[in-house]
Amino acid sequence: MQIKDLFSKKKYATIPSERPKRDIPEGLMNKCSKCGTIQYSKELDKNLKVCSSCGHHYRLSAWERIGMTLDDGRLYEYDAEMESVDPLEFPGYKGKLEQQRQKNPNLRDAVVTGEGAINGLPVVVAVMSFDFFSGSMGSVVGEKITRAIEAAHEKKLPMLIFSTSGGARMQESILSLMQMAKTSAALSKFQGAGGLFISVFTDPTMGGVSASFASLGDYNLAEPGALVGFAGRIVIEQTIRQKLPDNFQTAEFNMQHGQLDLVVHRKDMKTTIGKLLDMHTVREGLSHGG
């Protein structure tokens, strides 16, 4: 039996196709932060939020990404109601969380997880959103990603993660740090059992997310121009007392230094992931050895 057949029997809640639109700021025009070109929002959306003039990839919210990536923009969401608490009683954290939730009515924290399909092939996905608390990883991000990996393991499905993050959620200090170990340990089990993990770096992916699950893909992809690294540019410039080149830590820079498999334009992202998934689909009568 093909995975595809299994998948088509499942019932899916149609969710997010209407959601992304709510995330788009009011106004008809957008100005490219890279080249300054002003474009109609409608045109920009049609172009998958890539600047038609310079190719700059605008940052996407989790739901926009899901809408562009999954078949019919459909996601069966996991753990939608999970939200952050304030375990350290860190000054100002509760208020900041409330503020972030109000700013992002479609998000409870910086990651959305669930199941969907790409070109008919089922996949478990985790999509991070930089809009929420700079995509920082606290207990909720770590837990949701770990659960998603465990679900992929249990259901023998591939795992796909789109990362974007400023790093650790400082307000959860040590608990935030430990999410790096938790998610990586889940990948150890999943990948150790033969599970396929495709990791996509989007702009920006730094610190604790870059230094844990995001770097552990069997295939590590990135969007053009995405900033990917461990330490931030300012800290590094202070340490080495030198100016860094403009392209430092970009996806292209990282690929040149052997840290990435592929830089993929947004318009080709779904096709590329679909191809990878297809390459890992065992077909009856074609598998060798047995």
Partner: peptide, 26 residues
């Protein structure tokens, strides 16, 4: 912390840390 330098980034600081986390788990 890990050394915050350009050469460290070029040689894959993130990947080196991440790999240790995963391998130690196993």
């Amino acid at each position: 912390g890990a050394y915050p330098g350009n050469t460290a980034e070029e040689r894959g600081q993130s990947e080196a840390i991440a790999r240790n986390l995963r391998e130690m788990a196993g």
